[in-house]
């Protein structure tokens, strides 16, 4: 269960990106966050895992208050939050396999990750995940050799190997063509259901007219390709 209470973010420039947001996402729920760009969707997601430091308010994940954690505690907490990015954010010069394994960085001591000797169980799990998304034969290719859809699937594998409790997805399909977008969205929804994960999915660039045209879940389904459990519009 992820709970936000009065979460507020004011940037140094004075922009109020989030204004006392209250939100609850129970285990197993996929929440679509819809709104025009600049509405604060990305900020909301980044405030949850504190890539952006919230100005005030609290974030609680399964009873742990993330906003009060020190750097060590925060690192531990981040392992339970998988993040998927619009631009995939793979390490371009590493192989697909190493990219997937980088999801284990929070669990494996530094010297082992430096020597690239991850525990065998992690490697096995990485192969399983790659097989699940149909990229097994790509394991030794470099990430920059893959297509957009393939990269995002590697991104999903990297997140799943973290063994997360919640997925934070920042416009996961914004850089993909419509067909691939729908495939990726369907995959994400399936995985959330399989593992009973909570997820917040940002969806970008929805024009205000479209917001008026189809309110709520219909709009979500329209831009989502798959039906989320719940849909929230930020304005």
């Amino acid at each position: 269960m992820l709970r936000l209470e009065k979460l507020t973010k004011i940037y140094k420039t004075g922009d109020k990106a989030l204004n006392a947001v209250d939100l609850e996402v129970p285990q197993g729920q996929v929440l679509a966050l819809i709104g025009p760009s600049g509405a604060g969707k990305s900020t909301l997601i980044r405030c949850i895992n504190r890539l952006v430091e919230p100005t005030s308010g609290t974030v609680t994940l399964d009873g742990t208050e993330l906003t009060g954690l020190g750097s060590g505690g925060l690192r531990k907490a981040r392992r339970r939050m998988g993040m998927i990015f619009q631009e995939y954010a793979l390490v371009e010069r590493l192989t697909v396999m190493k990219n997937v394994l980088s999801g284990r960085l929070g669990y494996v001591p530094f010297w082992r990750t430096l020597l690239r000797t991850f525990p065998q169980s992690d490697v096995d799990e990485a192969f399983r995940q790659l097989d699940r998304v149909g990229l097994l034969e790509m394991a030794d290719k470099r990430a920059d050799e893959l297509s957009g859809g393939q990269r995002q699937r590697v991104g999903i594998c990297r997140v799943l190997i973290q063994n997360p409790a919640v997925l934070l997805e920042d416009e996961p399909t914004a850089s993909l063509d419509p067909k691939t977008s729908r495939q990726i969205m369907r995959l994400i929804c399936e995985l959330c259901e399989e593992r009973n994960l909570a997820a917040i999915v940002n969806i970008h660039g929805v024009a205000k007219t479209a917001l008026r045209q189809f309110p709520g879940p219909a709009l979500a389904a329209h831009c989502f390709g798959a039906l989320p459990d719940r849909c929230l519009c930020l304005d």
Binding site: N49, L51, R75, K76, A77, R78, R79, M81, M83, F85, E87, A89, L90, V91, E92, R93, L94, S102, G103, R104, L105, G106, Y107, F110, T113, L114, R158, Q162, L168
Partner: peptide, 27 residues
Amino acid sequence: MDKVQAEAIRATGGSWLQRFDYGVFPQ
């Protein structure tokens, strides 16, 4: 450098050294 790659490593819970090793160094 492309800061999103380093951000992604940070989001997995990697330490500062791991962030450098995976997110910065390859770039």
